[in-house]
């Protein structure tokens, strides 16, 4: 399968800004192409493809972003990143033997909380997923799920007891998912947790979690490890879904009403022609 233009011409995370020091470089793979990310002694970051061509660079949300193609759009905006009082937390890349699209879809799913994140994000018998609202917002070309509610024993590092947690999900790009959830120490505000995924190939990727939280007390390393604990509970699931590519053929898997976000996400990918990491026809 060739890399679709939609996939080629998008932005992907290639490094954590803070961890790349002056005069240092690192090599990462983006869609089977090796890229060298280097920071000069002047602090300027350059991204170079294997054939020597310069690649576009954007720096935002703690990460260095690049592309093997030519994005015709700026990197999506996360307005909350600019709000005062939020702590930004880079949780680092974790490698997953799965399609980047499977990784994003799992991030949009709440029904797995009681079984995969037991006693943290969910617990039996509180397994019911109440109806929620999903839309593809054509003006911004994004998938949104709102009015999502779920019972959580320990919703965040800062949570002390179980509570009904409100969620919103936003998919601003095929390989990025952002969730907004009830912020335990600050009712009325939303914590923001994003997952930025870099496809290494169609069925292998690096996932970078990033958070913008209202939490003045937790230690940074505790926040990182809480998020890593959650994501690593998902990893063994993601590496054992068959097929490894995300099926876009509706006959291939059986969704229910709880999967409304995933249904919209798959439909949106298909409509955009985002086929990298997807399986179009059941095999």
């Amino acid at each position: 399968m060739t890399t679709s233009d939609v996939a080629r011409n998008d932005w992907y995370p290639v490094a954590i800004d803070n961890l790349l020091t002056n005069g240092q470089s690192e090599v990462v793979v983006l869609m089977q192409e090796e890229l060298t990310i280097s920071r000069g002694n002047d602090g300027v970051i350059k991204v170079t493809a294997q054939d020597g061509r310069p690649c576009p660079v954007a720096i935002n949300y703690g990460h260095v972003w690049s592309s093997i193609g030519q994005p015709d759009h700026a990197l999506f905006d996360i307005p909350e990143a600019h709000e005062d009082g939020r702590r930004m937390v880079d949780c680092g890349p974790v490698r997953v033997k799965a399609s980047p699209l499977r990784v994003v879809e799992n991030f949009l799913d709440i029904a797995h909380f009681p079984f995969v994140h037991t006693d943290i994000l969910g617990a039996e018998p509180h397994t019911e997923v109440e109806p929620y609202k999903v839309e593809i917002r054509d003006t911004v070309d994004e998938v949104w799920a709102t009015r999502v509610r779920f019972f959580q024993p320990q919703a965040a590092k800062s949570a002390e007891e179980g509570q009904m947690t409100d969620y919103m999900y936003r998919v601003p790009a095929p390989c990025t998912s952002i969730l907004y959830k009830t912020c335990p120490p600050r009712p009325g505000s939303w914590d923001v947790i994003a997952l930025f995924v870099r496809p290494i190939s169609e069925d292998l990727c690096d996932a970078y979690a990033w958070m913008a939280l209202y939490d003045e007390t937790s230690k940074q390393s505790d926040l990182v490890q809480f998020q890593q604990m959650i994501f690593l509970q998902d990893r063994s699931i993601l590496e054992n879904q068959i097929p490894r590519l995300l099926p876009l053929d509706p006959k291939m898997e059986v969704p229910t009403r709880a999967d409304t976000t995933s249904i919209a996400y798959r439909r949106w990918l298909k409509r955009k022609g985002m086929t990298y990491g997807a399986q179009l026809v059941a095999r």
Partner: peptide, 21 residues
């Protein structure tokens, strides 16, 4: 299933979906 807890009987038929109890 470990992912969403869907339950199957020995005939393969799905008996219970925890998200829609």
């Amino acid at each position: 299933c470990i992912y969403h807890g869907w339950q199957y009987g020995e005939d393969g038929g799905c008996r219970h979906i925890p998200a829609h109890p």
